[in-house]
Amino acid sequence: MEKLLVCIQCPQGCKLMVKTEGEEVLVAGNKCPRGASYARQELLNPCRTLTTTVRTEFPDFPLLPVRTAGEIPLGSLFAAMGEINRLLVRNRLRPGDVVLERVSGTDVPLIATADMTLN
């Protein structure tokens, strides 16, 4: 299998060539090691960090921005959104605080990215 990709790890956007030879995955065009692991991952199981918001019970801070602490499979993003949109935050959280232990059947937690204690 052979695939042309644009690396999305940073704004440089390297053009990557990735192909499989037997068990081995070969990557060309990457300017850094992150590009190589991205290309491998993209060929075998594309994953993304999900960033979205969670409803809170505080009128001065109605939505808390959140992200998955790591990447989750691209195909599970909509299931994760369904799950996350049912949550309600009842405490004033700070960046890094866990909102949900495991997102959508993965072992990746959902964490706050903004400081709700700030006023």
């Binding site: 790890q9 940073c10 704004p11 960090t49 921005p65 960046p95 990215t113 400081d115």
Partner: peptide, 22 residues
């Protein structure tokens, strides 16, 4: 800007907008 991709040049890691501002 709740999406990520901020801070790679200045902090060497990928942050969301609110995390960068924080």
């Amino acid at each position: 800007c709740i999406h990520d991709g901020f801070g790679l040049v200045r902090f060497g890691r990928k942050l969301t907008g609110p995390e960068y501002a924080f």
